[in-house]
Design a binder for these strands. Sequence first.
DNA 1: TATATTTGTGTGTACGCACACGAAAAACAC
DNA 2: GTGTTTTTCGTGTGCGTACACACAAATATA
Lengths: 362, 362
Amino acid sequence: MITIKDIAKEANVSEGTVDRVIHNRSGVSKKTEAKVKKVLERHNFKVNPVASALAMKKKHQISVLIPEHNDSDLFWKSPYLGVLKAAEDVKNFGVQVNSFTFNQSDAKSYLSAFKDLLDTEPTAVIMVPNFSDETKQIINQLEVLNIPYLFLNIDIEGFSNMAYVGQDSYTAGYIAGKLMHFNNVQPCEFLIIQSSQNSTKNNAISNRVKGFQDYFLKNEINSTPQTLKIEDIHNVLEAKEIINSYLQTRPEVKGVFVPSSRIYKVVDCIENNRLKHLELIGFDNTPQNTACLLNDSVSFLISQKPFDQGYKSVRLLTDFLIQNKVPEHKIYLPIDILIKENVEYNGRDEFVSEYNNTVKEG
Amino acid sequence: MITIKDIAKEANVSEGTVDRVIHNRSGVSKKTEAKVKKVLERHNFKVNPVASALAMKKKHQISVLIPEHNDSDLFWKSPYLGVLKAAEDVKNFGVQVNSFTFNQSDAKSYLSAFKDLLDTEPTAVIMVPNFSDETKQIINQLEVLNIPYLFLNIDIEGFSNMAYVGQDSYTAGYIAGKLMHFNNVQPCEFLIIQSSQNSTKNNAISNRVKGFQDYFLKNEINSTPQTLKIEDIHNVLEAKEIINSYLQTRPEVKGVFVPSSRIYKVVDCIENNRLKHLELIGFDNTPQNTACLLNDSVSFLISQKPFDQGYKSVRLLTDFLIQNKVPEHKIYLPIDILIKENVEYNGRDEFVSEYNNTVKEG
DNA sequence: TATATTTGTGTGTACGCACACGAAAAACAC
DNA sequence: GTGTTTTTCGTGTGCGTACACACAAATATA
């Protein structure tokens, strides 16, 4: 393994000079810079990130702005855990990660969480751009401060985010359509159940719906999915009434698509004898949804690998910060098709761990 | 961040002593050991793996024994690439990885590759236990030398391998059965096409077949899949003859299951007009197989994430070597269901990279 | 020409840990 | 009690890099 010292010796300069060249720091004459660079290239020199990290020591702050999670909405727990895991992994590389959460239905909390976030003086930011107007304000500030930022899970155009990490929502919806059609080839109807809140602001969800519908259009299936909007899915009584009365009037509905992580709520709402004859497809392997797979009330879940989204975001940014490695602009994670039988093998959140520092035992 | 120095100060001993305690090295009296351990625990001290790696410097050799790959059998390229990637990632942690390959249909090459492998004086071994008798010999030597070993991709019982990293083949086959049944509910027949070579020795493949058959048994579907064995799948003419004449006599066959990564070969063999009316399910997203998905000749591929298998094996062993972290005995990777639409999002082999040492550019 | 200023380069130290070496302390022999 | 061995422990150095600081050379200012 070739070291800076070796390079220095061969180029007849000091280690400090080599270091300066490597980091494009000032204070080196053009002539020696060229000389050193040549030696560097000849040996294909790469800095040893381990030694580098050790020498740098806590220089970077990555601050994360994501929705909070609670018992009824566990989805956001996964990206959070992914972030935590990555934080542990990069800790010893001199990167500190701080998380800030906001209430997804409260734009003010979004702004105030961001305000707290700014106090950490972040080197870079990972955020879920949840409200479009407020996001504009936030991005504005970030750009003034020249802080790079990355979008997680929700993709919005029109900003110069360094990257987007998440799923290709349109294709995910399209796949849901295909899966829905699998078991139900005879002419029949499909229903999309959406929460009104989500539909207005969440890009990801509307893309899923578009993909779902496009499957039927592009494959010339004479069955256009209908949409049923529910004001507040957490109001079980009301939702129950709406859903069941709809299904009552439309017995030809054979499948229900829920483009959010709340399919378990829909399952709760549908009467049992009806449920048996319906195919349900939803998103995300939260514990509640997974339970629905296992008890056969849901046929498919599409996972967007939320844990990996969180994990990967942090790792990408770290690579950027300590190595100037520029990530691709769109990082699409796999579109996992989950069924009863393979769900237990997914979401093994411990996969690919860094050396998380346990005291050795003999 | 608490350091060894801090611990030493608090325990009124030297850093060297703390180091000895941490690594269970000899030369510490019971009394001081207890004292230091208490302080260690109170602060929940973890060694900084970055500094640790820097100080150790190239102490471990992980040697890998896997089948070779070529243009017609690309499957083993993926684990190899995963190993390479991991090798890069752990290089700076003082771990060197060497790969040795053998011809899957030549037991002698297996032994001779192992002999070469031994010359590297490995600290630990990752191997694909391909031939059972020869594997016994190999394991024997490893155990005499007290070298820990890990099974990759193929799981054999009766050895004290530290872990198995791969897929739950039985469940993967079971899932294939379910998927096969999806589109074909009306009474119909299914065919399993196997290569005779594989069937006799490859545990993974026979488990897939068992799982596939069990799906039909357990769900009381009155259709037992038939098996067709092909002597040599690479002899296209012969295989063509066998397969097509079988399908000729059995028009009620609606689906074909190929429990290996060679489904593209089977596609080559089946006449086009017949192909259109068959549902094919196979394993592994090799380039050739992926092409079959994309041109609609194959409906599903089940991926066993071979890249991840290789990657993860190395990382697990590294964790064990430099941190004494004992892995779980069975590491099952996700069972990915691939279709035309999501295949491009899988197997993004660059996922979760370590800092692979690029010279920074300003 | 003498002095101030800028630029270019070398030196030293710290990062946290592993381990070799040798000193001190304890244990044992006589 | 001294001499010897064994056990126990502290010190010092190195891993490869980052960066502050010091200093020399080159250039500018008076």
